[in-house]
Design a protein around this nucleic acid. Sequence first.
DNA 1: AGTGCGACCCGAACGC
DNA 2: TGCGTTCGGGTCGCAC
Length: 272
Amino acid sequence: MPEIAEVETVRNTLKRRILHKKIKEVEVYYERMIENNINDFKKNLIGESFIDIKRRGKWLIFETETYYLLSHLRMEGKYFIKDREEAKEKHEHVIFVFDDDMTLRYADTRKFGRMNLILKQDLEQTECIQKQGLEPGDKNLTAEYLLQKFKSKHIPIKTALLDQTIISGLGNIYANEVLFYAKIDPLKPAGSLTKDECGKICEGAREIIREAIQMGGTTIRSYTSSLGVTGRFQQNLKVHKRDGESCFVCGAKIENIKVGGRSTYYCPKCQK
DNA sequence: AGTGCGACCCGAACGC
DNA sequence: TGCGTTCGGGTCGCAC
């Protein structure tokens, strides 16, 4: 499922393929995916071209002359580039047709992804963008920042790491990995973390995301006709989905528990 | 205000 | 090529 590194990889790859092509048609097969009025959405995009693709947290931001198209892949969203001739597949919900008859297709089995077309000047007031916290690579993401954000929070640190208003872009996988890196018990209340622990979280988020983006970049090159994103960072996972296996550091059995309803993997010996 | 939980989805995994 | 049930996962909205 797309996490920040995969979103970043999709961004980089799409940038090389779809910029400056004029949109001549927009097909929407699942209307609830679009936050806007469907007719406005289509009408406003037709005639525009994507001139850049940015990212904020897990949001992809397609820029045109007048608008930003915000796109969130949630768990299973994928973009494909195909010839117009190719038949529509079951889970392709939005298709952008360019004037060279290539298409950009958004596919999403779970239909959880969302798109929102906004005027460029409204970006900073748009709620989903406005409330994003600091990016893992932001130099302002410091132990002091986290200490301040976690202060008075009684929720488990694992849950706090999934809060996009604190650090933006971390999903379940990276939250698990970052806590293993920082050697922190996922159930520890966020407000009880020391400054050192917060520092470790900053460091872990920065390093793990940097590495994952690199691996995502490696994976995408193996795709020729499509941009389906699977990501190869799985190879680097230390705890996620490794329950019952041995910890690479101490050999103890990795455990799987539910924290805030989410699958949480950790080493009970390393993360105390 | 902070926190917890159901809803949104549907394919995969599971139970019998 | 068995079928019904459960689960997962990011985010929002609502209840407490």
